[in-house]
């Protein structure tokens, strides 16, 4: 049984249909990449799958429970974690506190002692390379650091599944290499990942399977080499990346 499943998901913003009958299923421990041109509906799909947005029609199931349209804390408690394409930090909190929120209020692997929670938060910051920024205000971070914090916050609730929205975009080549390493490390730990990236090459290094979204519809679904060979991808997506 898939861990996460979207069935016939459609979303319309006024007259604009952002998603048209999307079916996706992510299996446990699978790493799935999602590609698609700007505005094709990738982030909207994540909002629906993560319980932030009620679809116009269609359903979302997570481990046998229907979570369509939220409330978001249900999806969070069941084990979905996510990052945002445009980081949404707890701007006024310190970096350490930002991670402590998830560590403190998660439903799985909760620590009773404050010292243990703090140690766990520091461990997460170490994992993403922000240990030396623990005391800084989240709003004061650079974009690269903010993206790392996004990941640490997403991990802080011990999710079973991660929705990662363009972790690598806007980063330097060195930053992108680190993102590839993050993906590999998370995969080793058995994390299920559904990730949007703009770069086909980056996703191909980490994904078992890829989906291509175009104008709100899944047009290709298969392993990376097959996706690369597909004429739809060349037409809909790669043409844009060349520019």
């Amino acid at each position: 049984m898939p861990i996460l499943e979207g069935r016939g998901v459609s979303v319309a913003f006024g007259g604009l249909s952002a998603l048209r009958g999307v079916d996706v299923a992510i299996e446990e421990r699978e790493v799935v990449g999602l590609l698609g041109p700007n505005g094709s509906g990738k982030s909207t799909l994540f909002n629906v799958l993560g319980g932030l947005l009620r679809p116009t029609s269609g359903e979302v199931w997570f481990r046998g429970q229907r979570i369509t349209g939220g409330p978001p804390w249900v999806a969070g408690r069941l084990g979905i974690g996510r990052t945002f394409q445009i980081p949404r930090p707890f701007a006024g909190l310190s970096v350490l506190d930002s991670v402590l929120v998830g560590v403190t209020f998660r439903t799985r692997h909760r620590y009773r002692r404050a010292a243990d929670r703090r140690a766990e938060a520091e461990r997460l910051l170490g994992l993403v390379g922000l240990a030396d920024k623990a005391g800084a205000r989240a709003a004061a971070l650079s974009l690269g650091e903010m993206k790392r914090l996004e990941l640490a916050v997403a991990l802080s609730s011990r999710p079973a599944l991660l929705l990662l929205d363009e972790l690598a975009s806007g980063l330097s080549p060195k930053g992108r290499e680190e993102v590839v390493l993050f993906y590999a490390r998370l995969r080793e730990r058995g994390m299920t990942i559904f990730a949007v990236e703009h770069s086909f090459g980056l996703l191909a290094q980490v994904a078992d399977r890829m989906l291509v979204l175009d104008q709100g519809q899944i047009v290709v679904d298969g392993p990376p080499p097959a996706v690369l060979a597909s004429p739809r991808v060349a037409a809909a997506y790669l043409g844009e990346e060349e520019r």
Partner: peptide
């Protein structure tokens, strides 16, 4: 206080982490 501050700063984000507002 941590829950209060998190909900104040970014309510949706906090609820995605399992916090019911």
């Amino acid at each position: 206080g941590l829950a209060f501050a998190a909900l104040r700063e970014e309510e949706e984000r906090a609820s995605l982490l399992g916090l019911r507002p």
